[in-house]
């Protein structure tokens, strides 16, 4: 996380002068200099950096350049939108993707399998930018409905956002179930006369779920960071949009805080995945 924060610190400072971004394009040098001084950008870089780190340790994340408000307040205002979107998308992709994948695995080689896999490739390859726009335009032109904005139904942006991971969930669960179905213990269970539904429910699914947990962790880790494009397209006022605008206006403290939160969620998600592994896979548990 420290590395992430440091990288952001460096990249933002080398990708353009925040003072120049804050001042109008035709501002005079005095104005730019005043902004520079106000933002503390006239201090040497290492001092800015240590000051920033000091602030972090004391729980001071800084203030937005533009509104003067504490960045964590702004962030927390936007977070519910992103969580709402991200979690809905996650459940859509999980609860559509995994059953589709399992279904395809159980009907391997059938036309249905091909349809499902075709769909998952499509879902994975379709840029959600394009898919979202198509959905919005079709709804507008054919149904006179507007799908964007804060008040709109979360379902549509969530579908857009979840589409790609739905595709990967489907593919992944298909292949992991296929692998499990052909495992020796499945064969052995059949030879012991265990009925089909029991074999699936108690033997295949738990084993097939293990590799999926990693994917789940990745999806959850990307919850905050993943929705940037979708939020732009659907005018969904979440963290993703906030990030885009903060980067565009070089709002250093804001960007740094968002990146910090994103890396925090990633780390937390990884930790959760590890714990989950411990829960479902006895082989990992320490005796």
């Amino acid at each position: 996380m420290l590395i992430a924060v440091s990288l952001v610190f460096i990249f933002i400072r080398f990708s353009g002068d925040p003072a120049a971004a804050l001042a109008p394009p035709d501002a005079s040098q005095e104005v730019i200099d005043q902004y520079t001084e106000m933002l503390g950008l006239d201090k040497p870089l290492w001092l800015q950096y240590t000051n920033y780190l000091k602030g972090l340790i004391q729980g001071e994340f800084g203030y937005s350049l533009h509104t003067g408000r504490a960045v964590e307040d702004i962030f927390l205002e936007r977070l519910p939108f992103t969580l709402n979107l991200g979690i809905t998308a996650f459940f859509i992709s999980l609860f559509c993707g995994v059953p589709l994948g399992f279904y395809a695995a159980l009907n391997r080689g059938s036309n249905l399998d091909r349809v499902v896999m075709g769909f998952s490739v499509f879902a994975f390859a379709m840029p959600n930018f394009l898919f979202g726009l198509l959905m919005i335009l079709i709804a507008a032109l054919w149904f006179n409905a507007y799908l964007g904005g804060e008040a709109a139904n979360v379902l549509f942006p969530a579908m857009t956002l979840g589409l790609a991971s739905m595709g990967s969930f489907a593919r992944f669960s298909r292949s992991s179930l296929l692998e499990v179905i052909n495992a020796p213990y499945m064969y052995a269970a059949e030879a012991r006369g265990i009925l089909f539904h029991r074999r699936m429910l108690f033997h295949a699914l738990p084993n097939a779920a293990i590799p999926l947990v990693t994917l789940i962790g990745l999806s959850l880790g990307g919850l905050i960071a993943g929705s940037v494009v979708t939020e732009q397209v659907f005018a969904w006022p979440g963290v993703g949009q906030l990030l885009v605008r903060s980067v565009a206006t070089r709002d250093l403290a804001m960007v740094q805080f968002i990146v910090l939160s994103v890396s925090f969620t990633m780390v937390t998600a990884n930790l959760l995945v590890d714990l989950l592994y411990l829960f479902i896979d006895p082989r990992i548990r320490v005796d």
Partner: peptide, 14 residues
């Protein structure tokens, strides 16, 4: 605020 023009336009048409 609707960052994407196509979305703005869709909202107008709708």
């Amino acid at each position: 605020i609707v960052p994407e023009f196509s979305t703005r336009f869709a909202g107008l048409v709708a």
